[in-house]
Measured scan of single mutants.
Amino acid sequence: MPVRRGHVAPQNTFLDTIIRKFEGQSRKFIIANARVENCAVIYCNDGFCELCGYSRAEVMQRPCTCDFLHGPRTQRRAAAQIAQALLGAEERKVEIAFYRKDGSCFLCLVDVVPVKNEDGAVIMFILNFEVVMEKDMVGSPAHDTNHRGPPTSWLAPGRAKTFRLKLPALLALTARESSVRSGGAGGAGAPGAVVVDVDLTPAAPSSESLALDEVTAMDNHVAGLGPAEERRALVGPGSPPRSAPGQLPSPRAHSLNPDASGSSCSLARTRSRESCASVRRASSADDIEAMRAGVLPPPPRHASTGAMHPLRSGLLNSTSDSDLVRYRTISKIPQITLNFVDLKGDPFLASPTSDREIIAPKIKERTHNVTEKVTQVLSLGADVLPEYKLQAPRIHRWTILHYSPFKAVWDWLILLLVIYTAVFTPYSAAFLLKETEEGPPATECGYACQPLAVVDLIVDIMFIVDILINFRTTYVNANEEVVSHPGRIAVHYFKGWFLIDMVAAIPFDLLI
């Protein structure tokens, strides 16, 4: 008679799926529990143990900040960024110097990925580790590398530091407007667009060049630039800015003055950032001319202004700041037409079709709590990747769950009947059967004279019903998954307890 339990259901295979997918890609990662103190490590794979030199037993239950890997060259700011990422709910990448158990130093890129439950609360953290440099290539500990984003994938490793954006290309926007319009339909740009040429040739750093990471940081200074100062900065030398009595002219307006920039070969870094931020506020060169004239017309309804409409929906549905990093990277690809469009465009503009998908598509409701890094690593669709929660398995109709209350009560009843059979069957065979043979035949009273025979008949009927119930009862397979398919249940029961239950259900007393 089957006594099969499996009270692990309803099970959740999400954690096993993450481990299996990460292991298949030869990654070095740990999984931490966000619900406990210090976000203790609950799993670390073999790749991480080989990377740091510690065994799994030495890593388990330690804080996922990996303070046991810190050393003299470990930056405090990087460690603080990892700790801050564990307090938030967004994906974050941090470069930090770690030390192995043998004392060797290596520069590592740590990717902190939160995993949320159905309520939107962070319950786990996945920390992925990628070695960037070994100890002989690690720089000085005073050099802070965590304020910069990861290198873009479309640049060669040897040319990542030679990417320079020439400031004269930004200063000569109005001069290039006529050349853009003359391109017409034969050019790649839309009317009114501004073409910015980027020099990728390796050259020595000069005062006129600005690194790509500095251009990325310009967006942080746009908020500090007032509207009046932006307007004066875009007017140009024809209309000098008016300053109040006793007030000095704005240095932001002076930063885009061609006369002032041409007199000296070098520009201050602050002026460069502010000038680029001011130019980015204009949607095209037409807006710059309109600002000089004193009238700013409404933005025209053409394809170039609607190019950012799908980007707005993608940004609203993005799951991490990696989408913004990807957008900034692609927006700086050289030799393309940049349409400086305000994100607050007309909502009635139709979304044009684009061959290049900048932001990841909208994630469906079932995966809105899973970050983009987890979705990318697992390579699963929205119909396959579940949320991290207890999910009731989908069972067929008329199927009994093996952990249901009805099955528990039924098993206790069958257990009592088995005990009765084990006690009274030998007793009936030894004593009652002998008395029946010696006594007179009682054929007239039937079952009324033999109450134990009636009980034995009921017990046999219950055993037959138990066999039928076992054909529709779920079970737990070797992978700790609840199986509810009727065919698989029948095959599993035939290979197991079916023969024993059938022999126990045969009414031998009635056959004798």
Score class of each variant (00 low, 15 high):
Asp346Val: 11
Thr371Phe: 14
Asn117Gly: 15
Lys161Leu: 03
Ala80Leu: 12
Glu230Ala: 09
Asn220Met: 07
Ala89Gln: 10
Arg62Glu: 08
Ala285Ser: 04
Asp144Pro: 14
Glu37Ala: 14
Ile123Asn: 15
Ile18Phe: 06
Ala228Lys: 11
Ser26Val: 05
Pro245Asn: 15
Val325Cys: 08
Thr216Glu: 10
Pro386Arg: 01
Asp355Lys: 14
Ala160Cys: 09
Arg159His: 08
Asn146His: 05
Gly71Val: 01
Ala172Val: 01
Val295Gly: 12
Gln25Val: 07
Glu58Asn: 01
Met291Thr: 10
Ala83Leu: 12
Phe129His: 04
Glu23Ser: 11
Val138Pro: 08
Pro334Lys: 07
Phe22Asp: 05
Asn117Phe: 05
Arg56Tyr: 03
Met137Val: 07
Arg273Phe: 11
Leu127Arg: 01
Pro352Asp: 03
Gln25Ile: 07
Gly158Thr: 06
Arg76Pro: 15
Phe48Asp: 01
Asp321Thr: 05
Arg77Met: 14
Gly103Tyr: 05
Phe163Ala: 15
Ala203Thr: 04
Ala282Val: 05
Ser153Tyr: 04
Gly47Ser: 11
Thr74Asp: 01
Ala211Asn: 15
Arg148Cys: 15
Arg73Ala: 12
Ala307Glu: 13
Glu91Gln: 08
Thr371Asn: 03
Ala217Val: 07
Glu365Cys: 12
Gly53Asn: 01
Thr74Ser: 01
His309Arg: 09
Pro347Met: 09
Asp259Ile: 06
Glu274Trp: 15
Val113Arg: 10
Thr162Tyr: 06
Glu95Ala: 05
Tyr99Met: 01
Glu58Asp: 05
Leu165Arg: 09
Thr201Glu: 09
Leu343Pro: 12
Thr329Asn: 14
Asn12Ala: 15
Thr216Asn: 09
Val195Met: 03
Asn369Gly: 06
Leu380Asn: 04
Pro310Val: 11
Ile358Glu: 07
Pro72Gly: 01
Pro227Ile: 09
Pro202Gln: 06
Ala382Ile: 06
Tyr99Lys: 01
Asp286Ser: 09
Leu86Pro: 01
Gly192Gln: 12
Ile31Asn: 01
Arg292Pro: 11
Val41Ala: 01
His143Thr: 11
Val112Phe: 05
Phe340Glu: 15
Phe340Gly: 14
Pro10Thr: 12
Glu95Met: 13
Ser264Gln: 07
Ser264Ile: 14
Asp355Ala: 14
Gly186Leu: 07
Ser278Thr: 07
